[in-house]
Computed example of a mutant assay.
Amino acid sequence: MRTGDDRAIGQASLRTLALFAAQAQVSYWVVPAARGAHVAARATRALTDWAFRTVRLHRVFLLHSTANPASCRVALDCGFPAEGTLRGHMLHADGWHDMHVHARLSTDL
Rank of each mutant, 00 (worst) to 15 (best):
R2E: 09
C72N: 12
G10T: 03
C72I: 13
A24K: 01
A22S: 14
H89G: 03
A41G: 06
A43C: 09
A75M: 03
Q25V: 10
A34F: 04
G10E: 00
R53H: 12
R7C: 12
M99T: 05
C72L: 14
A82M: 11
P32R: 05
M99W: 10
A24R: 00
T66L: 15
H97P: 05
R45P: 02
E83L: 11
R104I: 07
E83C: 10
F61W: 14
S65I: 06
S71E: 00
A93Q: 09
W96R: 14
V30I: 08
A18Q: 12
A41Q: 04
A37P: 02
S13E: 06
Q11P: 06
R73W: 11
D5P: 09
A93R: 15
W50Q: 02
L76R: 15
R87F: 14
F20K: 12
T3R: 15
A75K: 05
A21M: 11
A82N: 09
A82G: 13
M99Y: 11
S106V: 12
V101N: 01
L14N: 00
T48K: 02
S71R: 03
I9D: 03
V74P: 00
D6T: 09
V74Q: 02
A46G: 04
R73A: 15
A22F: 15
R53W: 12
M99G: 04
A67Q: 13
D94H: 10
G36R: 04
G95N: 07
A67T: 09
A34Y: 03
V55I: 12
T44V: 13
D49H: 06
H97E: 08
A22G: 04
R104H: 01
T3W: 10
R59E: 02
F80D: 00
L47M: 09
A43D: 01
P81C: 07
R15Q: 12
R87K: 10
D6P: 04
L63S: 05
P69Y: 11
A24N: 00
Q25C: 08
T107D: 08
R7K: 14
G95D: 00
L19S: 11
A33G: 07
A103K: 01
L14C: 03
E83P: 08
R35D: 01
F80V: 09
T48F: 03
L86V: 09
G88L: 08
F52V: 03
